[in-house]
Design a protein around this nucleic acid. Structure first.
Length: 420
RNA sequence: GGAGAGGUGGGUGAGUGGCUCAAACCAACGGUUUGCUAAACCGUCAUAGGGGGUCAACCUCUAUCGAGGGUUCGAAUCCCUCCCUCUCCGCCA
């Protein structure tokens, strides 16, 4: 959620920023008009409430002294009715402001490239080399089937398409990746957490996922719980409605969860195997920090995610995501993409975002400095999602005979060095 | 699923309709005293929003006692609905 004061004080600048993100600007005018109405109502109603408070005191005194207070009581009856009416008007204006505000994304930082779609993202870093063996690289679905480590048809039978099924060494490899990543992040100063995969509506709202993206979520009906689309949701909510101690910042967490996404509207796109799934595994990093730290912390988080890939010798590139392709809550975003030799393309495996104070304002997560409370900045980064990393890993490390060589860093987690 | 108890400021905890528009204590912070520590004493001790302003550290008003409604001139206090926590029973990995 944006700060309404920012909109009030500098509407033209906000409009400009919205345009850059490909958004219409009329919401700004709507908010300005509603805000004026809101503040007028507040002025009116508070004057009446103040009157009511004093007169109620007087009535108490009069009754105590045995005087007749019925005239005043009659007066106050009218005042109370008026208060009720204005309060209703006020609540209506506030609700409408909130509705509009919920549709406005975070402001892009200056270093974010302008653009409309992922085609306009700008290369930021590239590491490693494409697998270049002199043979035809099998794609992960064929390879997984041949080695009997992945079977998407079983997943489809159990749940539906987009629910992966791992088997034998394939399952062990998945678990090894998760453990390797968690251990690495712990060494980088993150506190490991394990958390609920179903969260309540308040948590989803605090993380700015709902109501805007409700149709992308799995939801349980009788209890109104949401299957988390990312561990970002539960982790951000650890500190909802809290004032953190300045000396503890930055507070860093990492944790593994399964992630659930309906991917509504993208049926038929990238449906093969792991490329787009409804359930996947991800290790997430979250950082609560001082506002002036957040962009340097962001670079650090990017390096932590990239460090995983480098330890696994996975060819990757980082793109600076453009204004049109950025996440709703992000002010700046890096995507990390890994190379698939079989698809002959880059696959998004991680996203590191600086959400500045956009989530913390909604979630009321603050710290105290010089007797004033300020919203802290929240960053999230996948480090990383396993599914597409898994694709790159097994495809790139396959041998001409169709075996998979496990990277050395994983040996102590898998207990084997080759599949097949 | 059944029965019961309870949710008050950072913590403990008083308060069952009007000198409580939340007492007291603890913790924290600032100060005084002291050779040092301790103790004692004094002070500060919420959050959000509105208005005023020499627009910052100031003044003022309003709201907030789990959430939302209701009754009333007036609600932490009475009524209704919901949420959560704890205890016991049942079921269960």
């Amino acid at each position: 959620m944006l700060d309404i004061k920012l909109i009030r004080e500098n509407p033209d600048n906000i409009k400009k920023k919205l345009t850059i993100r490909g958004m219409k600007t009329e919401s700004v005018d709507k908010i300005l008009a509603l805000d004026i109405k809101r503040r007028e109502s507040i002025g009116e109603v508070e004057k009446l409430k103040s009157l009511r408070n004093t007169v109620s005191q007087e009535i108490a005194v009069m009754k105590k002294e045995g005087k007749d207070a019925s005239a005043r009581i009659t007066d106050m009856k009218k005042v109370s009715d008026d208060i009720k009416a204005i309060d209703e008007r006020l609540a209506e204006a506030e609700k409408m402001i909130d509705e509009v505000l919920r549709d406005i994304p975070n402001i892009a930082e200056d270093s974010v490239p302008e653009g409309k779609s992922s085609d306009d993202n700008v290369g930021f870093r590239i590491w490693g080399e494409k697998a270049s063996g002199d043979f035809k690289y099998l794609d992960h679905v064929e390879l997984g089937k041949k080695l009997d480590i992945l079977d998407f048809s079983i997943g489809a039978k159990i749940s539906g398409s987009g629910f992966p099924f791992y088997k034998g060494r394939g399952a062990v490899l998945e678990r090894a990746l998760i453990n390797f990543m968690l251990d690495t992040h712990k060494l980088n100063g993150y506190t490991e957490v394990f958390m609920p995969f179903l969260v309540n509506r308040a948590s989803m709202e605090a993380a700015e996922k709902v109501p805007k993206f409700e149709e992308d979520m799995y939801r349980t009906d009788p209890d109104d719980l949401f299957a988390i689309p990312t561990a970002e949701v539960p982790i951000v909510n650890i500190h909802r409605d809290e004032v953190l101690d300045l000396k503890d910042l930055p507070v860093k967490y990492c944790g593994y969860t399964a992630c659930f996404r309906r991917e509504a509207g993208s049926y038929g796109k990238d449906t093969k195997g792991f490329l787009r799934v409804h359930q996947f595994n991800k290790v997430e990093m979250i950082n609560f920090c001082l506002p002036e730290q957040s962009y340097s912390q962001m670079e650090e988080m990017l390096n932590h995610a990239c460090g995983i890939l480098e330890a696994l010798n996975v060819h990757y590139r980082v793109v600076n995501v453009c204004t049109g392709d950025m996440g709703f809550a992000a002010s700046k975003q890096y995507d990390i993409e890994v190379w698939s030799p079989a698809e002959n393309k880059w696959l998004e495996a991680s996203s590191v975002s600086n959400c500045t104070d956009f989530q913390s304002r909604r979630a009321m997560i603050r710290f105290k400095r010089d007797k004033k409370t300020e919203f802290l900045h929240i960053l999230n980064g996948s480090g990383l999602a396993t599914s597409r990393l898994y694709v790159s890993l097994i495809e790139s490390n396959q041998t001409p005979e169709g075996k998979i060589v496990i990277p050395k860093a994983l040996h102590k987690y898998t207990g084997f060095e080759v599949i097949g």
